[in-house]
Amino acid sequence: MKRETGRPARRRAGGKSRLTYALAGGAAGLANGFFGGGGGMILVPLLTRLCGLDQRRAFATSVAVILPLCGLSAAIYLFRGSLELTTALPYLAGGLLGGLLGGKLFQKLNMDWLRRIFALLILYGGVRALFF
């Protein structure tokens, strides 16, 4: 399982990268807990720039990292009273369907386009949050 993508140039993890992974994860955790989302927007750029992962691995790995963080943050939100399960339910069901689809489609995605869409989504989100 060492070279799943068949690309020869991928950097292997070493002592330094363990620290950079921890830094990236910590930053993503802060954003994730604080804003209730958006951890991936921190994590993906950090994984590519700081840790040297290629884009596809960065996106997929960020899903795996963010999952437990969301679990913990959600538990705290639930415990502290700002969560209603009944309102959440249809979003959860939809997310399940969409997630299955996303996982299947991911391999066929053009990463350059994905990156552009990603950037536009972030910009849109930023404009919305700041001015509306």
Binding site: R56, A64, L78, L96, G99
Partner: peptide
């Protein structure tokens, strides 16, 4: 925000098996 956090649990859990199967997860990072 709370719903969004909760929503990611089934969503990510549904997407991850495909990512893992396709070998896109950087295990050293986890």
């Amino acid at each position: 925000q709370g719903i969004n956090l909760l929503y990611f649990l089934p969503t990510a859990a549904a997407a991850l098996p495909a990512h893992a199967k396709n070998g896109f997860i950087e295990r050293a990072a986890l």
